[in-house]
Design a protein around this nucleic acid. Sequence first.
DNA 1: CTGAAAGCGCTTACAG
DNA 2: CTGAAAGCGCTTACAG
Lengths: 340, 340
Amino acid sequence: MAVTLKDIAAEAGVSLMTVSNVVNGKQARVSAATRDRILRIVKDRGYVPSASARSLAAKSSRLVGLLVPAEGETSLTIDPHTVEVVGMLERELRRLDYHLMLRGISHRTEITEALRSWHLDGAVLLGFQDAEIDRLKADTVGGVALVAMDSYSANPLALEVRSDDFGGAELAVRHLIGLGHRRIAFAGPGFSETGVVRERFEGYRKVLAENGIGFEPELVSRVEISHAEGAAHGRWLAAERPDVTAVFTTADLLAIGVVDGLAAAGRSVPGDVSVVGYDNADIAAYVTPKLTTVAQDLPGKAAEAVRLMMDRLAGKDRPEQATTLGVRLIERDTAGPPPQ
Amino acid sequence: MAVTLKDIAAEAGVSLMTVSNVVNGKQARVSAATRDRILRIVKDRGYVPSASARSLAAKSSRLVGLLVPAEGETSLTIDPHTVEVVGMLERELRRLDYHLMLRGISHRTEITEALRSWHLDGAVLLGFQDAEIDRLKADTVGGVALVAMDSYSANPLALEVRSDDFGGAELAVRHLIGLGHRRIAFAGPGFSETGVVRERFEGYRKVLAENGIGFEPELVSRVEISHAEGAAHGRWLAAERPDVTAVFTTADLLAIGVVDGLAAAGRSVPGDVSVVGYDNADIAAYVTPKLTTVAQDLPGKAAEAVRLMMDRLAGKDRPEQATTLGVRLIERDTAGPPPQ
DNA sequence: CTGAAAGCGCTTACAG
DNA sequence: CTGAAAGCGCTTACAG
């Protein structure tokens, strides 16, 4: 059997409580002499506190969940862009002596189950639709600190962290207009009333309006985020919309597909058509031509998520408003002036 | 407060034990009538068992750790190639009603701590050096089911799962030789007596020998896995070793860097130099020219890891030998005949 | 088929 | 500065 508090107490000739106080660093309550003696025994015997016992007895589990949507029987879709966030969250949490539980959510009720079953102190929601965040109820969520990444939900139960999606789209479209483009298409996955893609769409639309360019619904295409879908879309643009000279896309992978589809149809990038991506994934710099794209501050996003969570766990008040991180345009080789 | 077993028992007018039996599906021990009644109350009240209480009382935590090296204060390095494995592990484990704890290991002792503190039933070790797996001792690891991914350690405490790295190198180098190459370089991160890179190196060397090609130590370069290091190496090859007509690389990212470095130095791929990567990452198909590479069976690897772990948790004997998954060569556009 | 008792390894007030 | 008691929410034998 593993060594317990009791074993240490017996060996040190003190009570359980004293050992507990020492192990938990409540210095004021134990004399330096006994503390040192106990610490030595703890080390010698290789005592490791039982987190489940601690979690059961105390009100805190020091456990934070990372909840990610997982459709039905499929595995989690952790896109490269969020992996980095996962790694950073783990590191920050570890530094503060918390543990991270990774959990795929295939049904709505599982969020509550996950929170309750392990008495999670907090949870980070990654990649959920705003509607799902909206649905969270206080009676089911309890006092758990919730951080929703990339969410525009108005639910006061969650702290929102996202980057400036509206502004990112503005940067991209202004850049294209500055280059001389007037017929600019928008390509991204389906979106609803709120959310990341909706924001980028509204940013796109606003800049068009600002520049006196009429909005054409047929220039907005729903394209799921994959290289294949992007390529198909590129071919479609070449065949059906030769008047379009620029495309603003909501993801790098999509943009790369569009570039390849355009090229396959004989149209050059950026000679005939300019393409702007989103995220500044590593891959954006490795393809030919290198992708012009909007960069998010991923480390900042992760750090902010952890900071908000820790403040909340420490009992601080909920901040006034959601945290929004800055974006910037990375100019590379897929955006240039329109032809002739 | 959350609803407990006791609440359910009180409401149903039965003992704690009976509710426990029902919740845990020990059907034989309870009449159908009371079972249905209890189940209804459980559902109505939204009862969720306390995992920490269960873990403390039972011998099993139904918790599996995913342990990943994390150098010092840096965050986990989960390369794209292993992310997929993480997602698949989570899904399989979830299906079997286990939970996944993600934990970065920055110091050796943390492995033991992680196992003990949460009473993990099992752990998957991802990305550790063989030497670290070798060091695991029975007294510190206890009866925990351990699966080491991509490990060639001989430690009987861990179950090894990897793909055929030796064979993958053979495929790549045979392909190059078949194309007519004789001066073939090897580029990969530093390696020791055993391990993934060592296997690939030995595969490379064996095929050279089989074909009567003398082994030249100067053709083996230590290059860390990054695009920048790969590019620097490509430039170096162009400048210092113009006699080399082909490079076998241990990672796609590296290969892509080499291709770009070579191109920057005015050498064309595959016209002047052929390059073969490893892993068949998504990116391999998006770059220009598309990368010829060795594909691993990632889903197979993840499934096998979970299967081994579950067999072990179910008390089955340790398999005779490590599991090795097949690899295959993906021919694309970076390998062709040598010049003239 | 159902239950009363003991115990898992801790922490939390409360005393001294 | 130190300790005895109660309890966190379960499961595990053992009885009936």
